[in-house]
């Protein structure tokens, strides 16, 4: 039974308001006096209960190898994995982002036409699925090409691989658009580096210190009219006491 049919038969069953009070349209009068945060808007700090999606150690090491060439340790700050970006992406993939809860994933799906219309490849698989198949393909590619696990490749080999991936010159099999996978990983690695530490990355606000972003402050009235000045504002995060 499809969803629409299910809805119609439900409607038929619920013959009167009173019979199924839980199903009535939610009526609201007056301003709700509750001031407690709504559950779905409460901040949910990234959990530290271990990996939930990146449970395979090789896959995780391979992803860290990619992330740490996208954002290496250098004079500008720690590497992606040192800054917590692997914990960050694992946490993201375990939640609504990973399952693609917001995305329209229904068919029909005609990849060629959708790519043409939208100026780039479209997907009906969730980000979680794309990571898991992508990381497997990465390992297969390294084994086939260099006869070793991806994460053991030298920095320069990984850099070359990523450069080619960015240019769409890497073949990871028919299932995977390697350029799109590159863009996904690049986006997420940098999100982890620059998002509030409450999401698991940007440890010690390293990403914010790199550029001079003061973080979760809410009042700049004192500063707005100070012209062309280094304000030297120490960043603050949403984690109390961080």
């Amino acid at each position: 039974m499809n969803r629409r049919k299910a809805i119609f038969s439900l409607g038929t069953l619920a013959a009167s308001w009173v019979a199924v009070p839980g199903l009535l349209a939610k009526e609201l009068h007056k301003v709700p006096s509750e001031t407690r945060m709504n559950e779905d808007h409460l901040p949910k700090p990234a959990g530290r209960q271990g990996y939930r999606v990146l449970t395979d150690e090789i896959a995780r090491k391979n992803l860290a190898a990619v992330f740490d060439r996208l954002i290496p340790a250098d004079e500008w700050g720690p590497s992606a994995s040192e800054a917590g970006c692997i914990e960050f992406i694992d946490n993201e993939l375990a939640g609504d982002y990973g399952s693609g809860a917001a995305l329209y994933l229904s068919g029909p799906f005609d990849p060629d036409n959708e790519k043409k219309m939208m100026g780039g490849p479209q997907f009906i698989s969730s980000p979680r699925e794309r990571y898991l198949t992508g990381l497997k393909a990465l390992e297969t590619w390294a084994r086939n090409t260099w006869n070793s696990s991806f994460h053991t490749l030298s920095d320069s080999r990984i850099d070359e691989f990523l450069t080619n991936m960015e240019a769409g010159k890497i073949d990871l099999g028919k299932e995977i658009d390697s350029r799109a996978l590159f863009e996904l990983m690049l986006q997420n690695a940098r999100e982890g580096y620059l998002a509030d530490p409450i999401h698991g990355g940007n440890k010690n606000m390293a990403g914010w210190k790199m550029i001079g972003f003061p973080g979760a402050r809410y009042d700049y009235r004192l500063y707005i009219e100070r012209r062309n000045e280094n304000l030297n504002l120490v960043p603050v995060s949403l984690i109390p006491g961080d």
């Binding site: 709700p32 407690r36 709504n38 409460l42 999100e191 620059l194 998002a195 973080g215 949403l238």
Partner: peptide, 24 residues
């Protein structure tokens, strides 16, 4: 849903780029 200032986006929740801007 019903959304209001103190229950859904007070200052300590609003300042989160990833949630509100990146993930919309």
């Amino acid at each position: 849903a019903w959304r209001d200032t103190s229950t859904d986006f007070p200052p300590a929740v609003d300042t989160d780029e990833l949630r509100w801007h990146t993930r919309r």
